[in-house]
């Protein structure tokens, strides 16, 4: 029996918004440590890794490991039926072929339940080694979303260069070129607005804007975003999800012909 109860169903609504454009379907792997999801977009250029820890739920029970193949468009439809302040419970029997979502309004006057069929998805997992990245940049998530949006007007690719002076985002194309430089902020009173850069050695990598703009759909989940870069390996874009977990996007770089 699997049962997970979350007082803030808005977290799940935002998680779905953060992945539904990149992925059509995904397997939610449930165990006693929580819910994990790893999936690549259809082109295998990017990968999403979601982790929701069991201790972040108000109630969590998972008697046996359960892999739920989910069509994300269907789950999005169900999550749209939930109010932001509803309490959400996900329930599934062991080796179930369906999962039930229950939503309770805050005053308990409205109780809804939706049963969704599960899919048989083949499990393909990539092993992502713990990596000590050359550059780790933390910046306001809204700022990063704005940069990706603005630069994607100039070209299909963004060059992200990180030196000890700061981080530079560049794009060039038919209409011209654009550069956005962010310096490390000095002492800011609100840490959500800080830009911090830990650089072991400078890195400059090229990425497709399209995917970065998919990743920034996760912006409502966290006021800050963390970019981790090393030469010749995928970029990691991480958004914390409250106290319950995180969503990490990996993006393969574009390399010189």
């Amino acid at each position: 029996m699997f049962e997970a109860r979350l007082v803030q169903s808005s977290i799940f609504k935002k998680v779905l918004e953060a992945i539904k454009e990149l992925l059509n379907e995904a397997t939610f792997d449930c165990s006693d440590s929580g819910i994990q999801l790893q999936a690549m977009d259809s082109s295998h250029v990017s990968l999403v890794s979601l982790n929701l820890r069991s201790d972040g739920f108000d109630q969590y029970r998972c008697d046996r490991n359960l892999s739920m193949g989910i069509n994300l468009a269907s789950m999005t439809k169900i999550m749209k039926c939930a109010g932001n302040d509803d309490i959400m419970t996900m329930k599934a029997q062991d080796n179930a072929d369906s999962v039930t979502f229950m939503f309770e309004s805050p005053n308990q006057e409205k109780m809804s339940d939706y049963e969704m069929k599960l899919m048989n998805l083949d499990q393909e997992h990539l092993g992502i080694p713990e990596t000590d990245y050359s550059c780790v940049i933390k910046l306001p998530s809204a700022e990063f979303a704005r940069i990706c949006r603005d630069l994607s007007q100039f070209g299909e690719s963004v060059v992200i260069s990180c030196t000890k002076e700061g981080v530079k985002f560049s794009a060039a194309g038919d209409i011209g070129s654009a550069n956005i430089k962010l310096a490390q902020t000095a002492n800011v009173d609100k840490e959500d607005e800080a830009v911090s850069i830990e650089m072991q050695e400078k890195v400059s990598l090229t990425f497709a804007c399209r995917y970065l703009n998919y990743f920034t759909k996760a912006t409502p989940l966290s006021p800050q975003v963390c970019l981790s870069m090393s030469a010749e390996v995928p970029l990691v874009v991480e958004y914390k999800i409250g106290e319950i977990g995180h969503i990490r996007y990996y993006l393969a770089p574009k390399i010189e012909e």
Binding site: H44, A252, P253, I255, E256
Partner: peptide
């Protein structure tokens, strides 16, 4: 222009 790589170039299936 640049060549887009894919995940399998960097990570192994487990």
């Amino acid at each position: 222009d640049h060549l887009q790589t894919v995940m399998e170039k960097f990570y192994e299936y487990v």
